[in-house]
Amino acid sequence: KQDVLQHLLDEQAITVGPHDQISVPLSAALKDGDRIIVDQAVPVTIMADGKTTTVYTTEKTVKAAIGESNIPIREQDKILPDTSSQLKPNMTIRVLRIDKHTTTTKHDIPFTVIRKEDATLEKGQLKMVKAGQNGQLVKTFEKVYQDGKMVSMTLLAKSMEQPAVNKIVAVGTKEKPKPKAVALSAASSASQSVTKSGLSLKAKKVLNNVTLTAYTAGFASTGKSKGDAGYGITASGAKVSEGRTIAVDPDVIPMGWWVYIEGIGFRRAEDTGSAINGKKIDVFYESESYVKQFGKKRGYTVYVLGPTKPKLS
């Protein structure tokens, strides 16, 4: 019996909210046969760009609600739930900003050391034929960021910008000449008596102004590494031992003979070396760092004693 729409709605206890849509104005006059449509808005929460907004919409899908809210959506962005999903009251819609960046990184590729035998070099000698150079590998990655945080990283490509150049080292294989016999004997009448370290020594020969150096069993001194054949074995066949082994010129100090070195002590001639000529002695030590510190020492006096180490009486 009401003649105005608002009066009819009041009579039927139908509330029209500020965001609802109605097919005719509330002040419209009614006539027989009228069809009135009230489209009620539902609350929806939209989270995008670090902000949370609640909107009321009469749209039916997520896509339509996003469009109505004037939030810009890029092709790579992601919307949860899917844009085709039907809207429900109090639904939460998330807009995830997806960004992709391409980066490149450079990585060193170590060179390889190649050893080649050389019959022109004495056994144990080393000579660098070609210097090595590290290569460089370039990798291209794609990083994907979601709302400013990286969520994935994918290798797109890799290329060798600069190949490694192998280092080539010549290793001597030429046999060393056999030591010449030295005309010294344990019974030499030219022995000199001297007292050292509490012992009375009879020196077969006294060497003045002797130069001392130091060496180890490692690659830097011998060209051999642990596991190589002959590693730690001297020219005399004995195994190197700190506090005993020295390398000498067999023409000056016979192999197997003991000596007394001022400031060093007793040592035994067990090894030779291509750089050990004349009045030079190479003293064996285990520590590579100590050998580097040892350097070259000059002006030492060495007493050549004989094949038997003196003992305390």
Rank of each mutant, 00 (worst) to 15 (best):
Q2S: 11
Q2Y: 13
V4T: 13
P18S: 09
S27V: 05
I37Y: 10
Q40A: 05
V42G: 00
V44A: 00
M47I: 14
D49T: 01
T58I: 05
E59Q: 14
K60W: 00
K63W: 10
A64Q: 14
I66C: 03
E68L: 07
E68F: 02
N70I: 03
I71H: 00
I79D: 14
L80T: 06
P81V: 06
D82N: 05
S84A: 15
Q86R: 12
Q86F: 07
L87E: 03
T92Y: 00
V95M: 03
I98T: 02
K100Q: 15
H101K: 14
T102D: 08
T102W: 13
T103H: 11
T103I: 12
D108Q: 06
I109D: 11
V113S: 15
I114N: 15
L121K: 13
L121V: 10
G124N: 06
K127G: 06
M128F: 06
K130N: 05
L137H: 12
T140K: 03
T140N: 02
A157S: 15
S159I: 15
Q162V: 09
P163F: 12
K167D: 11
K167M: 14
T173I: 11
E175P: 04
E175Y: 03
K176Y: 04
S185P: 12
A186Y: 04
S189D: 13
S197A: 15
N208G: 15
T211D: 09
T211R: 13
A214C: 11
Y215S: 04
A220Y: 09
S221F: 00
G223E: 05
K224S: 09
K224I: 10
D228P: 04
G237Q: 12
A238S: 13
K239V: 11
V240E: 10
V240F: 11
V248R: 03
V252F: 07
M255T: 01
G256V: 00
W258R: 03
I264R: 08
Y285P: 02
S289W: 07
K297V: 05
G299V: 06
Y303M: 01
L312N: 10
L312P: 03
